[in-house]
């Protein structure tokens, strides 16, 4: 892997904690996903009621991006996201609303979130990001996949920065790890370093 790119900063959301560069910015004893997200919104987000209309995956990615991009001014940023469950968490809810033909009331507001990449759309709208984006679905976190695609984007000048992510929600379990890659930064953009940062809350 080329080593002329760097990780500027990173964020984690897991087990009722939200951290930026390893520093905890939010913590709750709540364990259920919904109250955790609501409490985090109340503390970290200023007046964005659309948050409550989002599905769980989008809420998770949105909060992880909110703390990470708070002071980010460069909007020339591509997005490379990944997860295991895709949008299954929302798909199941939608499916349950249409499985009974005598009670067939499909919700448009749920249907619009039955794609994993809508999560990137919500973040793009919030931070006014207009650029390349891609969402990989794979069995487990893969620094190789993310770094390969990210280097390609930066090598080809598709964007000045790349927002990379593992953002996964399924059956009440949730885990988000986001990081920004550019030509300047604190950590070398290597697979070893990405894995080390990922594991800081995933061991």
């Amino acid at each position: 892997m080329k080593n002329d790119y760097y990780i500027e900063s990173y964020s984690h959301v897991k087990n009722g904690e939200i951290s930026v560069n390893g520093k905890i910015v939010f913590k709750t004893l709540e364990t259920e996903f919904k109250p955790v997200m609501k409490a985090a919104y109340k503390k970290l987000v200023v007046d964005y009621p659309k948050f409550f209309k989002m599905d769980n995956l989008s809420k998770l990615g949105f909060l992880a991006a909110e703390v990470l991009l708070k002071n980010e001014s460069d909007k020339d940023m591509a997005m490379v996201f990944s997860n295991r469950a895709s949008s299954l968490d929302t798909d199941r809810g939608y499916q349950s609303s249409i499985k009974d033909s005598t009670q067939y009331y499909p919700s448009p507001a749920v249907f619009v979130y039955t794609l994993a990449n809508i999560c990137m759309g919500e973040i793009s709208i919030r931070h006014q990001i207009h650029s390349e984006n891609c969402f990989f679905v794979m069995d487990e976190f893969s620094s190789e996949t993310l770094s390969y695609y990210t280097n390609q984007l930066l090598d080809e000048n598709k964007a000045k920065k790349v927002l990379c992510a593992w953002v996964d929600v399924d059956n009440g379990k949730y885990n988000a790890f986001l990081y920004v890659v550019s030509k300047k930064g604190t950590f070398v953009h290597s697979n070893a370093e990405i894995n080390r940062l990922y594991k800081t809350t995933n061991e």
Binding site: P49, K53, Y105, P106, S107, P108, A109, V112
Partner: peptide
């Protein structure tokens, strides 16, 4: 209330349901 087009569709479903 600042509702949007998706909300309008939800209201149509609500009237039916």
């Amino acid at each position: 209330l600042g509702l949007d087009s998706i909300d309008a569709l939800e209201l149509i479903v609500m009237l039916d349901k």
